[in-house]
Design a protein around this nucleic acid. Structure first.
Length: 781
DNA sequence: CGGTGTCCGATTTTT
DNA sequence: TCGGACACCG
């Protein structure tokens, strides 16, 4: 019956059995945190708490799903399915839908993803006539994100001279106006961005005490996982909800806080004890995951951080192998070494590729690894990067669906209004925008009732717009009473979304058609799954799921063992027997952006700590002396983090470089035991080299990517030149052109349809002209 | 209006 | 080095 308590160690068990009151579980890496969380919920349920009364917030959808499943195994699936469990964003999106009218939003509001917000910001900056160099949309958006996560509304911003001053100093005096316009436009479009899901929840709870009261009463037990990564906005929500019953349990590890860059506030966990004076604290300090060498190495590293909670991770696991450090000359060699090492380990130790992971600081580093793995014939999968749902063809279809549900969704509408091409161009769109602004209506409202405006749009264009409106309206009718899959299928057919692609026939087009097909299949699965669980399976629900899905939520259909490649951020919460952490170099890891302040550097160190503690059996670190970055070959120095690990736990695989004549490489001094102050060396900027890499470029073999993974740029088959050369044109020829007049050919380049000539015209100067189009008459050769 | 070529910026991490 | 945004021509 309560046998689930048996396998727990004393602190774990104590945490599980503590049901009431505020509590914090400080859970070191690999200390069985998920287990404790799972069992604690099961324990609550077994002790008479209603599953509807438990709210459990996790960091990823995947974590939520897994936990739900595990709880189901203890208490039964039917009981588990009523739990409110999910990410902050998905749980509160759900609540916001049911309360949307209070905030003036439609319950079918759209969730803008980052691509949508960038596009919107671009148009705002353009429309406001601001310089796009001073107002970089990404920078503006991240500033706005900061505001929102700290509950600084437009109004609050305007009343805050300090912020205004700061933005003025940063050459962005219009920041407030941009912020206002952005918020207004989202609101008009019935759209929320990621931050709005939290901000609007706060608004809801503050402005409507009865709503707050309702959810306080409902969620008598609140649990938050990865508490160290919550931002201020999330903090306030949790606090408000738990205020009545004070049954709040947060779990986290300050040493694994790695999301400060997007607003996570490590003080939320550091100060939890101050927020709830009668808090009960539980520390899970025994690591069950890794060898003691790994645990001790990680400990010796994280000790270098000043701001941390007091805890000591220990393990009774075997010592295992030491952390192995490999030094290579180039990033290419690093890749080859990793691939070889994985190959040999898999062979010698009888491991499958699932047991291996390659972790890196930046996505760009994956390329060298991919090349090497591919060459070695090792299967791999990349997490992160462009997700399935971000692909053009998928976004196009989703945009149609979004418009059906919420025609005011401006970004979706702009995306599809002329795709497939309907002859509705920029000029028309500009006119519509102006009208929308003038009449304070959405674009779609204007389009569907052109007559009531004095908009000057010509007959043919008018017809096109009317046709578009009719198409959408009739699809909207289809959308009623049909499920998500049926609607999408209908859209594909009626709109002719994949027609061009099917005709096209290039491998790339075929792939796109397959992707669309896969989305349709995905929708079928979604509907079935949701129905089984008695959950909302509407189109709205599907779109929400997609908007909040992360790369991890892709379902893996291919189960051949593959090496996992991902950024360290993505690796949090995962574990692998063999872990390779690559690119251990200054300015890469720690990132050049993070070495200026202590807190940023400490976050990088925590990131490294997270990376190390992913490894169960063996951990490898590698760095290269040269690396291609920004298309240039640059010199690199070993990361300072390498020498922050206690030597006792380290083994160098390559001869150290101090005594050898390292001719072209300036000695970084890393392995020297000299007395030169480290800073002097470390902060030296890498030198850009002009020397080209001597290695012969590897020939890329066509490679079929596994499903759902980041797409490798399709290698378009070189277009064969079947058409006859347009003209026999050579340098020196005298030619005439209808528009440019007479000139002399300077050079001819390119092949087939791409033949172009550089011609120096007497009157208009030098032009490059594609012979396929331009009619050049040869006057003299 | 639509397709193609050119130029510019990106590379810190993402729910 | 590569992809996206923009300009320009037909």
């Amino acid at each position: 019956m309560s046998d689930y308590l048996e396998g727990l160690n004393p602190p774990q068990r104590a945490a599980v059995e503590q049901m009431e009151g505020p509590m914090i579980i400080i859970a070191g890496a690999g200390s069985g945190k998920t287990r404790v969380l799972t069992y604690r919920i099961a324990h609550l349920l077994k002790n008479g708490v209603d599953s509807f009364q438990i709210l459990s917030l996790t960091f990823t959808n995947k974590a939520a799903r897994e936990m739900k499943e595990r709880i189901g195994k203890v208490v039964g699936q039917s009981e588990a399915k009523n739990l409110w469990m999910g990410t902050f964003h998905s749980v509160f999106a759900r609540i916001l839908r049911s309360e949307a009218d209070k905030l003036g939003y439609p319950s079918s509001f759209t969730i803008y993803d980052s691509q949508d917000t960038v596009r919107l910001m671009n148009s705002i900056i353009k429309e406001m006539g601001l310089s796009k160099d001073q107002y970089k949309s990404k920078a503006i958006l991240s500033r706005i994100s900061q505001f929102k996560n700290n509950l600084i509304t437009v109004k609050a911003y305007r009343n805050n001279p300090e912020l205004i001053e700061a933005d003025t100093m940063a050459m962005r005096p219009q920041m407030g106006a941009v912020y206002k316009e952005y918020v207004d436009r989202c609101f008009k479009a019935g759209a929320m961005d990621f931050d709005d899901l939290l901000l609007r929840t706060n608004e809801l709870l503050v402005r409507f005490p009865d709503v707050l009261s309702k959810y306080q009463d409902r969620f008598r037990y609140v649990m938050v996982d990865e508490y160290q990564d919550t931002n201020h906005s999330q903090y306030l929500i949790v606090r408000a909800l738990a205020d009545r019953f004070q049954n709040i349990c947060v779990v986290g590890d300050d040493s694994q806080s790695i999301y400060a860059f997007r607003g996570a506030n490590i003080n939320n966990i550091l100060n939890f004890q101050k927020d709830y004076p009668d808090v009960k604290t539980f520390k899970l300090e025994q690591n069950y995951r890794s060898t003691s060498n790994i645990v001790e190495a990680a400990n010796s590293l994280i000790e270098k951080n000043k701001t941390r909670l007091d805890k000591t991770i220990f393990t009774s696991n075997d010592a295992g192998g030491k952390i192995k450090i490999m030094r290579t000359l180039s990033d290419g060699e690093e890749g080859r070494w990793v691939a070889n090492s994985i190959f040999e380990n898999a062979m010698n130790l009888q491991k499958t590729y699932d047991d291996f992971a390659i972790l890196y600081r930046t996505n760009a580093q994956s390329r060298a690894m991919e090349d090497a793995l591919r060459k070695k014939g090792i299967k791999y999968k990349i997490f992160g990067g462009l997700s399935f749902y971000q692909r053009k063809e998928i976004k196009d279809l989703l945009a149609y669906l979004r418009v059906l549900i919420n025609p005011n969704d401006e970004e979706a509408l702009k995306r599809i209004i002329n795709y497939p091409a309907r002859g509705i161009g920029e000029t028309t769109m500009d006119k519509l925008s102006v009208a929308a602004n003038h009449y304070n209506k959405s674009l779609f409202e204007i389009i569907s009732d052109l007559e009531s405006t004095d908009i000057k749009i010509q007959g043919p264009t008018k017809t096109k717009l009317n046709n578009f409106a009719t198409l959408i309206q009739s699809l909207q009718i289809t959308a009623q009473g049909n499920n998500a899959f049926q609607v999408a299928d209908e859209v594909v057919k009626r709109v002719g979304l994949i027609k061009d692609l099917q005709v096209d026939g290039t491998p790339e087009a075929v792939n796109r058609v397959e992707n669309v097909q896969e989305l349709l299949n995905g929708m079928k699965d979604f509907i079935e799954e949701r129905k089984e669980q008695d959950l909302d399976s509407s189109l709205t629900a599907f779109l929400e799921d997609v908007a909040l899905a992360s790369t991890f939520d892709n379902k893996d259909e291919d189960d051949t063992p593959m090496v996992s490649l991902m950024t360290i951020h993505l690796a949090k919460g995962l574990e692998f027997p063999y872990v390779y952490i690559v690119g251990m170099e200054e300015t890469l890891f720690p990132s050049a952006m993070s070495v200026n302040t202590r807190s940023e550097l400490e976050e990088e160190r925590r990131l490294f700590y997270v990376a190390l503690t992913r490894a169960e059996t063996q951990c490898y670190l590698s760095f290269a002396h040269t690396r291609y970055r920004w298309g240039k070959l640059i010199d690199c120095e070993p990361s300072r983090f390498l020498e922050e690990i206690d030597e006792r736990y380290i083994e160098h695989l390559a001869p150290q470089r101090n005594k050898v004549v390292a001719n072209r490489f300036v000695d970084s001094g890393l392995f020297d035991d000299d007395d030169i102050p480290r800073d002097k060396i470390r902060f030296r900027k890498p030198v850009t080299r002009s020397v080209r890499n001597q290695e012969t470029p590897e020939k890329k073999t066509p490679f079929k990517q596994p499903q759902n993974l980041r797409k490798v740029t399709p290698q378009l088959a070189q277009q064969m030149n079947t058409s006859k050369p347009a003209q026999k044109l050579a340098a020196g020829n005298k030619v005439s052109h209808a528009k440019f007049g007479v000139g002399q050919v300077i050079s001819v380049e390119g092949a087939g349809v791409n033949v172009k000539a550089e011609v120096k015209f007497e009157n208009v100067g030098t032009k490059k002209i594609l012979l396929q189009f331009a009619k050049l008459n040869i006057l003299e050769s």
